[in-house]
Design a protein around this nucleic acid. Structure first.
Length: 284
DNA sequence: ACGGCGA
């Protein structure tokens, strides 16, 4: 697959590259973008071998959560986890997280099994000291997770930010499946993570206010440890109601709205002016 | 400096 069509990704834009050395292994983190969306390529390189997994954009915060789980859990408590990500309408990728141990020490095996690629695996040594191995890996994921959110902040670009979001959401929802352990992989055990060194994880990244007649609609981009979401609130008088749309559904929403824009075009003509507008909220 | 995985 060295050709330019399909999966090679050679022409994809590199947004961010990071390198991590753990013992004698080198890990390369490449946040990349192509017209179909963003993804994180993680490569493990030794002098003899190279192995790569591709993490869909929507999976980055899940990887962060999982590494937090393995970093923060007691050795005897950790269990295997599976992370399933539906990346398109018809394909999904499953990542298997398994702990292993041999005379070299403990390691975390992360396997990617997807329809479109052969199964591939990276193995991350636990490391001896606190900032080696899993913790260092986790820290890189945290940096990438933060940085990827900064890409969509409205800096000077104003409304352009919302267009970028559509490209991000090529990847569709995520959910944990219980691993080989008896207990289900409840979200609560993942909420035990204490990412104290991270900036506020659930802070709203972007807000827009839309006025239509007497109503106001707030669009708040947020994220928590379950991923990114768009909160749309309707405020009329003292009543407020909200819907929470996982960012993975944003593209569908966009397409659905596009459908209604299309079929109501005739009636919409001449209505784009005074009573329908979208503004940026005042800075806080 | 390793070496795990799985073919």
């Amino acid at each position: 697959m060295e050709g330019n069509s399909g999966g090679s990704g050679g022409n994809d834009v590199e947004l961010l590259c990071k390198t991590l050395q753990v013992e004698h292994k080198l890990f390369y983190f490449d946040l990349k973008e192509n017209p179909r969306g963003r993804y994180l390529k993680i490569s493990e390189k030794t002098s003899a071998t190279r192995s790569t997994i591709i993490v869909p954009f929507s999976g980055i915060s899940w990887f962060l959560d999982l590494f937090n789980y393995y970093v923060n859990s007691d050795d005897q408590d950790v269990c295997s986890k599976e992370l399933q990500l539906d990346t398109k309408a018809f394909y999904s990728t499953v990542f298997y997280f398994d702990i292993g141990e041999n005379r070299r020490g403990r390691f975390l095996k992360v396997s990617e099994a997807s329809v479109s690629r052969n199964r591939s695996t990276i193995i991350v040594p636990a490391g001896n000291t606190q900032d080696e191995g899993w913790a260092a890996f986790r820290n890189i994921l945290a940096e990438i997770n933060e940085a990827s959110r900064l890409f969509m902040l409205p800096n000077q670009q104003g409304s352009e930010a919302s267009e970028h979001l559509v490209g991000l959401s090529d990847d569709v929802g995520a959910g944990f499946i219980a691993g080989h352990s008896s207990q289900p992989a409840s979200s609560s055990e993942l909420n035990m993570n204490r990412p104290v060194e991270l900036p506020a994880h659930d802070e709203m990244g972007l807000t827009k206010v839309m006025r239509v007649d007497q109503k106001r609609f707030f669009f708040d981009l947020g994220s928590n440890n379950r991923g990114h979401f768009l909160k749309i609130s309707e405020v009329a008088g003292t009543d407020r109601s909200s819907i929470i749309l996982p960012l993975s559904g944003l593209k569908q929403l966009h397409e659905t709205i596009g459908h209604f824009v299309e079929i109501t075009k005739d009636r919409m003509e001449g209505m784009t002016g005074a009573n329908v507008r979208t503004v940026d909220p005042p800075q806080r």
